[in-house]
Design a protein around this nucleic acid. Sequence first.
DNA 1: TGTGTAAGTAAGTGACTACTTGCATTTTAC
DNA 2: GTAAAATGCAAGTAGTCACTTACTTACACA
Lengths: 207, 207
Amino acid sequence: MKRDEILAAAVGVFAQHGFRGSTTRRIADAAGVNEITIFRQFGSKEALIREAMQHMTQSAGLERLPDVPVDPERELTAWSEAFMQHLRLRNSIIRKTMSELEERPEMSECASYVPRQASSDLCAYLAALKREGWVTGKFDPKPGAAMLMGAIFSDAMGRDMMPDVFPQPQEKAAQVYAGLLLLALGVETGAPRTTHKQNKRPKQLSA
Amino acid sequence: MKRDEILAAAVGVFAQHGFRGSTTRRIADAAGVNEITIFRQFGSKEALIREAMQHMTQSAGLERLPDVPVDPERELTAWSEAFMQHLRLRNSIIRKTMSELEERPEMSECASYVPRQASSDLCAYLAALKREGWVTGKFDPKPGAAMLMGAIFSDAMGRDMMPDVFPQPQEKAAQVYAGLLLLALGVETGAPRTTHKQNKRPKQLSA
DNA sequence: TGTGTAAGTAAGTGACTACTTGCATTTTAC
DNA sequence: GTAAAATGCAAGTAGTCACTTACTTACACA
């Protein structure tokens, strides 16, 4: 069964050319398959693309943040790096999907699944940071999460286009963004910038 | 001369449908013009789209930040709001352009003009903040600028799609992002979250 | 040996695409 | 008022698109 090869090819061609540019001929060639096989297997180009996108989304798998923060800088940096790499590896297809969303709203669920999950995970972590006494003062996790995710997303989408407006080197960018957020929240980092340690330590060191 | 009407129509149709979806017939209909007039005026669809994009880019006009910071929170908030509104008003066409950039690299200059200018302006402002003594400790303006711009960009692009992952209300979002950056840099805001006023005041209050 | 299934080949359909040609009509400039 | 420029109309060209029909090949399994 060439189904899976066709699905994989469809994802690749869509990432390169978008919906309108993903001709059935191109997909068939990329899959090493006769064009007709596509129609026999999927019925129509639209159905194929839809199934290909869902297939891709489901095989995602995102790094999770711990329920109880132990080392915020390390944990948030690791998560940010993983999230950024996830986005960077898929930046072509993400750009295409975002661009076609107005014309094909049925892709909306596919498109928003990963960022939604990442957002709620990050929000929960920031809330835990507060709950466990890492951050003083009142603060709302959502803007912080939006800020970090926004920075990571923009970096992953825009660095190819304008490498000079993003922090160098690329490998340190996620860490830098995470560090700035922690600074904004007043969480002590490994290399503290302020000299007054005012944070309560967490109630428990191991979860 | 219907040139300008055709250019405006081309921008609108491109924003809705992208390059491949911008058929000459659609543009002609949107402009209230015979399809042939397009070819007589611009020669080809490609030339028309190119000229339309340049025409749009040149008529931009971005809010500038002051050379010498006086009221960082107010100034940065105003700039962030203006930048966000600029992006939000154009989010369809930005999405399309980013998506087509790999297939049509000649649009690259058009696409990166505004963000490049915004980035260098913001970097200069953050450097001035440091120079004028608003922010203590060593810090690099570029990551901060990338973080704020990234948050604003992502908000402007993604809020339609997933309103619930961004801070509410929409009107306060830019202010919130600007505030978080100032917090990260350790610049005192109007409603200070930390109790110790450690910043040197600026050398001059009026520029 | 026979049957069902997945795949291929060849040819074609109707709709749409960018773009052209020839000629008539309107608008603008002086 | 008239010439020139801009625009419109009708028709058509060559190419591409998604998708179809009719028939053939390869192979698994019973």
